[in-house]
Structures are given as structure tokens and as C-alpha cells.
Design a protein around this nucleic acid. Structure first.
Lengths: 197, 197
DNA sequence: CATTATACGGAGGGTGCCTCCGTTTGCAAG
DNA sequence: CTTGCAAACGGAGGCACCCTCCGTATAATG
């Protein structure tokens, strides 16, 4: 009977409240920890508890499980992009790529569960909401790939997406264990060998 | 107060009842369908319903979610092994391997969700219960690999596990979509290129 | 048949998901 | 500093699923 029950972000009239902003930050922080340990199964109510917040608050900020995952993923991805852009203009593109990939594997190693949680939600359509970051990431990596191809070191029919997804694929497939990293890197390097011209 | 409540398989006195055997088969069949569609999240009660069986029955046959997954996985794996063993003695080992991997990818394509459901449970310790099948599988694939290495076509520091896990990894990473298969096969072939001596 | 080990169904207690709404609180206009 | 209200909060409650327990049904055996 009475429109405008829940004003969305677009048409709000005042500036956001301080407590709301703080809670959002605390929720993402809590989600990183809980999801990182428990994987995709982890309870959202546990996240709310850890953030000292009612479930209602969690669900207002993130209307469903996936929304929360995406918020976390966005932060992780930002790190990735920054690292990738830092590689621009490296002397040895192929080597730089390899280094970058290895660094990412190391990053993943510290967040096992999170990786699992995310890959469940990562469909094509989901990715559409990251166009901004995704574009920057692909631009940076493709730059490397093209430099490598131009210098004749790498084949020229490979794109950033191949590299990135394969890396995650290998991380994900290897079961956790003492030589997790060794195995992942070994296979990654084989793939990179396949990339040579 | 009264031992032997639930006689285990080892110490049973009569031969198993016919209805029990039928139900077990129906449950696995139902699980293949439901898990195949719904992925690891799918409801076990849905499986029971689909099999026209009470939940109690499901849980007696498979004490928990993982047990059911494993039963399904075992059946899938049997197919894999049979195919692999059929390749023995092929003229072109490297080509035979490639063919086998491609065939598996095609198999996976028809069972998307199932793959996801399984990879969640596939830790090292879980695999330990498949030693029999796993051994046969590795033996068959390694045979191919060694033949390839002997003929100088393939590098010699690669084992069956590398191949198999990488294949699953690539299948899993690629989001479902129209050119799912094309992408997976492309990356798989790059990996195979990396395998050359 | 009668006996009984074996298996079945589904109610029930526990937990997690998400929604709804009465209450609280920060912001800003007077 | 009040006051008014949009914005945000908390958590009860309804629903689905997980798994256990146990009274009832039934296939095997003699």
C-alpha cells in the first residue's frame, strides 16, 4: 500500500550510516575467516556471530550466500589485479608470468577453504559482475602474453583466461597435503611448457 | 546392554535379503541422477524419494553423504578403468592417451553436477579406499606413458596421476556453457603439448 | 508354518537458511 | 540541544534438510 519500503542504494536520501559501514566491513572480514576454514558449507550464522551482528544484519547487507562470497571474492581479485599490473614492462614476459602464477598459487595456499567456496559460485553470469576488475586483469596478463608472442617465446593462440583458469583448476584439483604446492607448481610448469612457441 | 545391535557385513548369518539388494541399487541409481543435476548440495531426502525409499533406508545403506558419493564414484571409476585398460598395446601411445582423455571429458560433460559433488569429497584419505581400482587405473595409464617415453615421444618425469588430476581440474574449472568442451579440450591439449620430450 | 535375523518407514530433535517486523540509533533540520 | 524519521539493527519464526531411533513388516531358514 505504501511504496519505497526498502530504499535501494541508488535512491537513498541521506549518506550511509556509520554503523552500517562498519558492520559491512566486519562481515566481510568474518566471512574471510569462516569461509576460509570451513569451505562453502560453513554456516552463515557463524559468520554473523563472528562479526558480532544479528543474522538479519548479515542478510540485509548480503541478500544471500552468493552475494557474500562475491564480496569476498572481489577483494581477493583486487589483489590479483594489482600484482598483475605491477608486472607491466618486465624484461622477461614469460618469466614474469610464471612468477606471477607461482605467487598466486602461494596466495591460494593460505586460503584453501575459501577457494572451494568461491569456485562453486563462479559461473559465467556471476563473472559478469566483475567486468571492471576482470578487464583490468585480462588486459595486464594479455599484455604479457603478447609481449612473449612478439618476441617469439610463446605461442600466440593463448589468452589470459586460459592461464588463469588453468591455474585455479590445478590448485583446486590437488587435495590438500604436505606436497600440495609442489604438485600444483609442477603441473603448472608443464602447462607453461606447452605454451612455448 | 546387549551387543550386536547392528550386525555388520562381516558377521552376518543369513544371505542378504533381496529387497535390501534392490534398494541399494535403486539408491545408487537415484543418487546418480539427483547429484548429477543438483551438485553436492542436493538433498539426500530427494534421493530417497526418487528411489521410493524412506530416509531411514538410505542412511542404513550409506551412513552419511560421503558414503553415498563414494558408492557412485566407484561405479564411475570402474568405467574409467575399463576404458584405460582397453588401450593397452595401442600403436601410438601418445595418441591413445589423448583419445582416452578426450573420451573422459565427453563423459564428464554429461554429468556436470556429479563431478562437482565428487571433487568435494576426494581427499587423499578418501582415495585410499579405492586402492584396487586406482592401482589398475594407474597401471594402465602409466603403461602408456612409459611406452611413450621409451619411444622418445614423451618426457619421462610424468605419472598417471598428473594426467588424470589435471584433466579433472580443467573440467571442473571451466564454467558450464556452450563451448565448455572446446575450452577444456584446448587447454588439455596444451598440457599434452607440454608433455612432449 | 513358525521363528527370527534383517530390513523398512518415517516421526522427531537438531541445525541452518532466510524473512519479517518491532525496536533502536545515527543524522540533520529546527 | 531537541526532535523526527529514515536507516539499520536483532533475533524469533517458518521451512528444509540432516541424521537417529525404534516399532513394524518381511524374507530367509528349518
Amino acid at each position: 500500500m505504501q511504496g519505497m519500503r526498502a530504499p535501494t542504494v541508488e535512491n537513498r536520501q541521506r549518506k550511509p550510516r556509520r554503523d552500517a559501514l562498519e558492520n559491512r566491513v566486519r562481515l566481510i572480514e568474518a566471512a574471510k575467516e569462516i569461509l576460509g576454514r570451513g569451505g562453502p558449507e560453513a554456516s552463515l550464522e557463524a559468520v554473523a556471530r563472528r562479526a558480532n551482528v544479528g543474522v538479519g544484519t548479515l542478510y540485509r547487507h548480503f541478500p544471500n550466500r552468493d552475494a557474500l562470497f562475491h564480496a569476498v571474492y572481489r577483494q581477493e581479485m583486487e589483489q590479483l589485479v594489482v600484482r598483475a599490473e605491477a608486472l607491466d614492462g618486465a624484461a622477461d614476459p614469460s618469466g614474469a608470468l610464471r612468477q606471477w602464477l607461482h605467487a598466486n598459487v602461494a596466495l591460494v595456499e593460505t586460503k584453501r577453504g575459501l577457494l572451494g567456496a568461491l569456485s562453486v559460485v563462479l559461473t559465467d553470469e556471476a563473472k559478469a559482475s566483475y567486468v571492471d576488475l576482470s578487464t583490468r586483469l585480462h588486459r595486464a596478463v594479455n599484455l604479457m602474453l603478447r609481449q612473449g608472442a612478439a618476441s617469439g617465446a610463446l605461442r600466440d593462440d593463448v589468452v589470459a583466461e586460459d592461464l588463469i583458469e588453468t591455474m585455479y583448476a590445478l590448485c583446486y584439483a590437488q587435495p590438500p597435503g604436505p606436497d600440495w604446492r609442489r604438485q600444483v607448481l609442477r603441473r603448472l610448469d608443464i602447462f607453461l611448457d606447452g605454451l612455448r612457441a
